[in-house]
Nucleic acid binder design. Structure first.
Length: 240
DNA sequence: AACCAGGACGTGA
DNA sequence: TCACGTCATGGT
């Protein structure tokens, strides 16, 4: 499956580095990037040094919970509400009432569930005490599933865990490289076994997948220019 | 006006 | 294990 690397290089060449995970603090600085989502803030393309602070780690974790099945634009607004309430950090959010918390995150949907999930995560995060979490530990937290766990590990902790999301399934099923309803771990393993185990590569690849999907995979029928440019010869398919 | 958005959980086969 | 319902607001 050398083709997974070819697709990565193609996406990288087309869109250039994405600068994930976006952080609120980077809003008014000059290293901004305009994306299809309409969000022009918080990205830091080519700079893999983030997160730099414990609060930024925390922000990415909360953001990854809030963005479950929800547009990032709404999540940004929710995060901004939390920040205004001085609650986008461990100490601050603990002093926030449930009512206030739900009010802040309401715009991001599923606010009752997500409020509980965030509380669960806070308890876990505090107990963690700045240690890097294990994947299994994260999965044991109610509200953190496969994708959220991998997002947190990859973007908040720079661990080489490939993130599989709905976009990934859609694109690579459309390119006929996977079955759309394959198990999460099966797809994750496919990517990880065919890429250099490197958090920067994993971060960029996933971000590029999202950018590409936002452009070509929002409505059927999908018209993916990649599908035409890639010559899927039989060698690629056999050599997996 | 249906459909999707950077999913996860609980339940019953 | 897996198919299905539920959670919820916002944008297109």
């Amino acid at each position: 499956m050398y083709i997974l690397q070819r697709i990565y290089r193609e996406l990288f060449k087309t869109y250039s580095p994405q600068g994930w995970w976006p952080l609120l603090e980077l809003n008014n600085k000059k290293n901004i990037n305009i994306t299809k989502s309409g969000s022009l803030k918080g990205y830091h393309p080519g700079d893999y040094s983030y997160p730099k602070t414990e609060n930024q780690v925390f922000e990415i974790c909360i953001g990854s919970i809030l963005t479950q099945n929800t547009s990032w634009l709404s999540v940004e607004k929710a995060l901004f509400n939390l920040k205004k309430a001085n609650a986008l950090n461990l100490k601050g959010i603990k002093h926030l009432s449930d009512g206030k918390l739900k009010e802040c995150i309401k715009i991001a949907g599923y606010f009752n569930q997500k409020a509980k999930y965030i509380r669960e995560f806070i308890r876990f995060f505090e107990k963690l005490d700045r240690r890097i979490p294990e994947r299994d530990e994260l999965l044991a937290v109610k509200g953190i599933g496969n994708e959220t766990a991998d997002s947190i590990l990859l973007y908040a902790y720079k661990q080489p865990e490939f993130v599989i999301d709905a976009y990934t399934r859609r694109i690579f099923a459309n390119l006929e490289l996977i079955e759309e309803n394959s198990a999460y771990h099966e797809i994750k393993e496919l990517f990880e076994s065919n890429l250099k185990k490197d958090f920067i590569t994993y971060q960029e690849y996933h971000a590029l997948i999202v950018e590409h999907a936002k452009r070509y995979y929002n409505k059927k029928p999908y018209e993916d220019p990649l599908k035409k440019s890639l010559v899927l010869n039989s060698n690629d398919k056999q050599d997996n």
